[in-house]
Nucleic acid binder design. Sequence first.
DNA 1: TCTATTATGTATCAATTGATATATTTTGAG
DNA 2: CTCAAAATATATCAATTGATACATAATAGA
Lengths: 231, 231
Amino acid sequence: MTMGDSLEGPVAQPGRDAVSNASRKGDQTRQRILEAALIEFGAAGFKSATTRRIAERANTTLPPLNYYFGNKEGLYRACAEEIVARYRQATHEAVARARRTIETRSGPEEARETLKKLMAASVELILGSGAYILGNGIIARELAEPGPAFEIFYDRLWLPGIERNSRLISLIKSEPLVSAETRMQAILLVSSLPSLHTRRIVAQRAMEWSKIGEAELRLITRTLHRQIDHL
Amino acid sequence: MTMGDSLEGPVAQPGRDAVSNASRKGDQTRQRILEAALIEFGAAGFKSATTRRIAERANTTLPPLNYYFGNKEGLYRACAEEIVARYRQATHEAVARARRTIETRSGPEEARETLKKLMAASVELILGSGAYILGNGIIARELAEPGPAFEIFYDRLWLPGIERNSRLISLIKSEPLVSAETRMQAILLVSSLPSLHTRRIVAQRAMEWSKIGEAELRLITRTLHRQIDHL
DNA sequence: TCTATTATGTATCAATTGATATATTTTGAG
DNA sequence: CTCAAAATATATCAATTGATACATAATAGA
């Protein structure tokens, strides 16, 4: 075999993971590519995004993409993993509280407050001006048209979220155990979040806002919170 | 000019429009192409859908697509127009009632019931097993990533819907005139509909349903209606 | 410093895809 | 029945795009 399949490079990230490891020279490039991919995939979707544009945005060329991620789909999956990691980190506090609330079978008051905090964290992540907005386009799209990352988001983000919210809503309603309707409420709640990202566009136009700043975000968030209040 | 730009065919639908006109032989083909495009664009999105697959599904070849619709984007726009027309027709009754309710400045009770009917019609259109499901993928996608059809949906579907719902919610709350928060509520309500299509997938998996039949749809719809009740 | 490994760039390929020039068939008016 | 217009098919083009063979450069351990 004269083809380049014997002396392979990375492709799969070995031991070094978690907290953005950019020590070796190559890891910096890897990170730049990942960042560029998050933007491009987020803006255009898996199929429509081109590896060339990603490479260009990352200030490199095509081969490194395959060198580090195998192929386009591998890069896309890596983006999904990255998004999940960022989401988990950003909601860590609220999730820990939810775990406690559920384990101690707290009362409706505490459960409701916990759920609100949980949702608020997600809403902030999606509508806030933070750095995580990158992934929301990808998530929303994956929900509209399941692609290579659906399983990743489902298993590690949505399903756990649905379980958590189900228990919390059950506590709020003082149910003995999670009813089908409660579970459905939790599903609708969780799966409505990604579309928030989407609704920004319509909201901005319909409200005739030139931009979405702090004041505008507050109105959106307040309206959403009121919905949660009425759960 | 030896190129085929002198003896052009249709491209733009002249006088004959409205109620599916399939009299002439060509119109049948046109209709088959449109139907196929609704399916393909709905499943894959504007960019990812290929004209070849559309032609194949319509049991024809490439040239007729350009002959009838100019180019891929023209075909996509035609799909959007078709979807708007079908939506309007299907919600005609509920919309007429809303118009009356608004014009006569009915009380909160009547306004709430009108809004529920309006939403129910949309929900049925999206989650029901009717024939209009075809377009929902396109609408949801267009909302997530504005493309050639965003303007069409916005101007002719969403904005009118937002206006209507705003007035109705205002009546429900007995406001003197539409407040910013009311308008935002209307926006969130309208823009949450397209994502219903999307949530089916997650709901089906998380509820461990093998399929979404009548009983399953009822649970989804009931849960949604309860949300509307608590507006 | 030397050299094997890792990393990156150049050039190119093959597949896909939107489009159309051109030829052929079908239709319907007279 | 004739024939011009309308409709459809064949074959092909050029652009885009994912991928990679191959060459070169950078890095780090000895």
